[in-house]
């Protein structure tokens, strides 16, 4: 199972190249043509990334995220949401590496096949780093007014968290 993703990836790459060959596309030249754009994109997103990581790391270092966990857990307990996965929920929209390490420590502490471990797994599998995507996508094309993007994206995240707990309860208990 571990290697499944790798096979898939390589199969996809070979497929595209073979398809290009069959269609008599100058494959190598096309590749270089497109790759040039990557250079420009990377330069364009750097300022946005600096701004994002600055805010996120400040927030994590200040201890605010931990405080937020303490505040939220009494509210969530009555609806059957495990407080143990809260650090993961709070980190997952803002930091990819942070949420990954939060996930790993949950697995280490409670075991992968426990209720908490399963809920954390579903959350880790079903969510993306929201603010990272927002920053990178809009940063790359110079969009400044993002209107209701963040609200809609966070609604999606919260729905995902709650459903994770619900589905694990339904499927495994």
């Amino acid at each position: 199972m571990r290697n499944f993703g790798t096979y898939f990836l390589l199969a996809f790459i070979c497929f595209v190249i073979l398809y290009g060959l069959i269609r008599r596309v100058p494959v190598f030249d096309s590749f270089l043509d497109g790759a040039k754009q990557g250079l420009q994109t990377a330069a364009q997103i750097l300022p946005a990334l600096v701004a994002l990581l600055f805010a996120v790391q400040l927030m994590i270092a200040s201890g605010i995220t931990e405080k937020l966990c303490d505040l939220l857990s009494p509210i969530l307990a009555p609806i059957g949401f495990p407080a143990e996965v809260l650090p993961l929920c709070i980190l997952s929209p803002i930091s990819g590496s942070g949420s990954l390490s939060a996930y790993q420590s949950i697995l280490a502490a409670y075991g992968a096949d426990s209720f908490v471990g399963r809920v954390a797994s579903v959350i880790a599998g079903a969510t993306e780093t929201t603010f990272y995507a927002v920053t990178v996508y809009y940063g790359a094309v110079g969009i400044k007014k993002i209107r209701h993007t963040v609200i809609a994206a966070l609604c999606a995240d919260i729905t995902g968290f709650l459903l994770a707990a619900l589905f694990v309860r339904l499927f495994f208990d």
């Binding site: 398809y19 290009g20 596309v25 590749f31 497109g34």
Partner: peptide
């Protein structure tokens, strides 16, 4: 981006 360009051209 490079791989995408191949797919696009094809």
């Amino acid at each position: 981006n490079g791989l995408m360009q191949i797919a696009k051209d094809a």
